[in-house]
Write a protein that binds this DNA or RNA. Structure first.
Length: 579
DNA sequence: GCCGTTTTCGGCCCGACTGTTTTCAGTCG
């Protein structure tokens, strides 16, 4: 097969477009909702091309024959008849109108039918000309709302990366802690599920002074607008359009509240559907026994899952792709924890493109309590500014050992060596043999064909001195990464005893969780690394662990949870086997 | 459109807030 025309994210986006246009066209509720559910499943599924090849599409929850056919058509043609048909009726710019906060399907439909408003520009004209005022339920405030929505739409940035969102969440939590008394206070939503990007920030709080907490929240100096303010709930916008929602309830329902607002939407729908079959109605206010009318309140999330008779599901697994069934069977894996980590294999100092000195990096790794870590500068193919030649590598080795001993941490000599376009490495085997452990990464010729990249990565795995493939897909922020035959490379990594990295650098988070979940099925070993380019970025290892958890990994599957001797054995075994 | 420990039909999660209303539709998460 050649290149796929659309990847998971693009197919999911098109399914969501179908969903919206179907609703506009007046299709039945559960028909268009099926497309929304399918989109969510595709976002969280393994690579589409591999799923289609294995005929596994209909195994995904919410995807039957009809939608599977649509997905295959999208993958093959980059387009499908259903969407083309719907697009005849509504121009693509209608999504601009729907993107304006406060305008939903009903309003957009009315505006389109009555005034032909089909784009943001049309909407602006209509607002300025005052023609909206005649519509039912369209008073002064509603028009003002739309005006504000238009401004927000224009100034809005894309989804916020996980790392940046966590910093903002910590800021607002710190602010709230200084306000009226609260019992428990934390972030929930996609942030707690550790999604790679988040659309908004959800804060949950318990307090017996809800009104005072809400009032304090909306007066935060970083709030640019207050979107909603009720007795238990408020929403604000920050500069750039990031929305923060706060919900305040009594402490007796903290478990229900946290479970509800952690989501995901799809997870909660499935959980509640299952609960209904057991005669229970689940919401943030508690669990209602329909037969007796008795309400069960839960102080912890564990109590919520226990009340529905299933195993506790960690937030990172709540994506609605089958975890409910596994939890009912009590077969969820014991996920890796941050405390399981004994070291970090991937970091840079000023010897290559890092910002902190070698000694600072080693001291900082020691301060984190690691048993071991490795310094992994770039190889010389990165150029004289960022890469190191073999003489510099040897000069650094003496320093690495000196500082490591001084700071009482086992510091391994490593390198992040470029995998060249033909799959050979940027250092000769004799130079590679001098390192304690080697990361191989692709940084160049990203535009090779799928076939070339597959061969390149497999050849790197087959090199006896390459122990870890760094940031395997090359994804960065909005770049989805170069495409290769994932299954073939995962199989090669497992066969050769080569670990695949889950890189925790903000913007990378690579391998992405759905691919790591796929790789796990091949028996691959993983590493969770910071890829720190400054001492403060060593904390990015936390992000890597969160992605490993989303992939359902246990500590046994992650190399840097093992002891120093076990890591050395992992390296030696490959050298003996393949040298 | 999908799904099944009521399995090929008849269901399909739950609630808060807003604005324009005198009881609720629309939006959002």
């Amino acid at each position: 097969m050649g290149q796929t025309l659309l990847g998971n994210d693009q197919v999911a986006k098109k399914l969501n477009q179908i969903r919206t246009l179907m609703e506009l066209a007046g299709e039945p509720f559960y028909k268009f909702m099926a497309y929304e559910r399918a989109a969510s499943a595709i976002e969280n599924a393994g690579p589409l091309k591999e799923l289609i090849a294995a005929d596994e599409l209909v195994k995904l929850p919410g995807i039957g024959k009809s939608i599977a056919a649509t997905i295959m058509e999208l993958c093959e043609r980059g387009q499908c008849g259903l969407l083309e048909e719907l697009s005849q009726r509504f121009p693509p710019t209608i999504f601009e109108v729907l993107g304006v906060s406060g305008i939903g399907i009903k309003t957009a439909g009315t505006l389109f039918e009555q005034f032909g408003i089909a784009s943001l520009a049309d909407l602006e004209h209509a607002v300025e000309s005052g023609m909206l005022a005649g519509l039912p339920r369209m008073g002064k405030k509603s028009v003002e709302n739309i005006k504000r929505g238009i401004l927000a739409y224009k100034g809005r940035q894309n989804r916020t990366p996980l790392g940046a969102a966590l910093r903002i969440a910590r800021d607002v939590l710190a602010y709230l802690k200084d306000g009226p008394p609260t019992d428990r206070l934390t972030y929930a939503g996609s942030l707690r599920r550790a999604e790679v990007t988040v659309g908004d920030i959800d804060i949950v709080c318990t307090s017996d002074q809800a009104a005072a907490v809400i009032d304090y929240f909306v007066r935060w100096k970083r709030a640019q607008a207050v979107l909603a303010e009720g007795p238990t709930k408020a929403s604000i916008w920050l500069e750039g359009g990031l929305q923060i929602d706060l919900r305040v309830l009594p402490d007796a329902v903290y478990g229900n509240l946290l479970q509800h607002f952690t989501g995901s939407r799809e997870h909660n729908i499935q959980l509640r559907e299952y609960a209904v079959r057991k005669g229970l109605r689940v919401s943030e206010n508690g669990i209602l026994e329909l037969e007796t009318g008795r309400s069960i309140t839960c102080r912890t999330e564990e109590e919520v899952y226990a009340a529905i008779d299933m195993q506790y599901i960690p937030p990172e697994l709540r994506s609605g792709i089958g975890e409910i069934d596994v939890a009912r069977a009590r077969s969820l894996p014991a996920l890796i924890e941050r405390d399981d980590i004994r070291g970090d294999f991937h970091m840079h100092s000023t010897w290559s493109d890092g910002r902190d000195t070698l000694e600072t990096m080693i001291a900082s790794a020691a301060a984190l309590g690691y048993e071991y870590h490795s310094i992994s500068e770039h190889s010389w193919g990165r150029g004289p500014k960022y890469g190191m030649n073999p003489e510099q590598v040897r000069a650094q080795r003496a320093k690495v050992h000196e500082y490591g001993e001084k700071l009482s941490i086992r510091t391994l000599c490593s390198s992040e060596v470029d995998i060249l376009p033909d799959g050979s490495m940027d250092y000769s085997d004799s130079v590679l043999a001098e390192f304690d452990i080697v990361i191989g990464s692709i940084h160049s010729a990203l535009n090779q064909t799928r076939d070339e990249l597959t061969k390149r990565l497999i050849r790197a795995c087959e090199n006896p001195y390459v122990n870890i493939i760094g940031h395997p897909t090359g994804r960065y922020d909005t770049f989805n990464g170069y495409e290769f035959d994932y299954d073939a490379v995962f199989a090669a990594a497992a066969r050769t005893g080569t670990a695949l990295e889950i890189d925790g650098q903000e913007g990378r988070l690579d391998l992405p969780a759905p691919l790591a979940r796929r790789a796990k099925e091949f028996g691959v070993t993983f590493t969770t690394d910071s890829d720190a380019h400054a001492a403060a970025q060593l904390a990015n290892l936390d992000l890597a662990v969160s992605q490993a958890r989303r992939a359902g990994l246990t500590k046994e599957q992650v190399l840097n949870t093992r002891t120093f001797d076990e890591v050395k054995m992992f390296v030696e075994r490959k050298r003996r086997r393949t040298a």
